[in-house]
Design a protein around this nucleic acid. Structure first.
Length: 153
DNA sequence: GCCAACGTTGGC
DNA sequence: GCCAACGTTGGC
């Protein structure tokens, strides 16, 4: 099992949106960055744990956890001309973009802000700190444990 | 809204 | 097969 950190803009899709899914899971789609796609397509597996991170908002922070419940499949939005994620260069037998399904697991009592993570000597090696712009990234077990502890859940 | 880091693309 | 240009991302 691998542990991950997934970023989402809360205006687009928040942890609360995932928690409110009637089906019990949500589709993590719209990934259009190659580095993130490669992780999604090649490494993310059912049962993997996910730190849910809110980005591009007032206080960027890890806000809770989720779990992967379906591994990579072709993101349907790339085939839909009406979608903003439409990609004319993608085809059904040669999809370019992938998505997974996630289930909500927990919401932190105390969100863990990026600013605090940067100040924490135990967490300075996180990809989140070392490489800013990556929306899907692996997390070490120790990092997961520290953040969940800080989150209070 | 700027701009830096990244993987991919495509012209040569 | 090199490498400059491109699109995406996201903190500031």
């Amino acid at each position: 099992m691998t542990l991950w950190l997934f970023k989402s803009e809360p205006d687009e899709y928040s942890l609360q949106d995932l928690a409110a899914e009637a089906s019990g899971f949500g589709r993590w789609d719209g990934i259009r960055n190659y580095q993130a796609r490669n992780f999604l397509r090649d490494r993310v597996a059912v049962g993997d744990g996910v730190l849910f991170y809110h980005s591009a908002c007032k206080i960027p922070a890890v806000v809770g956890t989720a779990e992967v419940v379906r591994a990579a499949y072709a993101d349907p939005a790339q085939f839909d001309p009406e979608s903003k994620y439409f990609d004319p260069k993608a085809s059904a037998d040669k999809p370019r973009w992938y998505c997974v399904d996630l289930a909500w697991r927990s919401e932190f009592a105390h969100p863990v802000p990026l600013a605090d993570i940067k100040k924490n000597p135990q967490l300075t090696e996180m990809v989140l700190v070392k490489q800013g712009r990556l929306s899907i990234q692996p997390v070490r077990q120790e990092e997961w444990d520290s953040i969940v502890k800080l989150g209070g859940k």
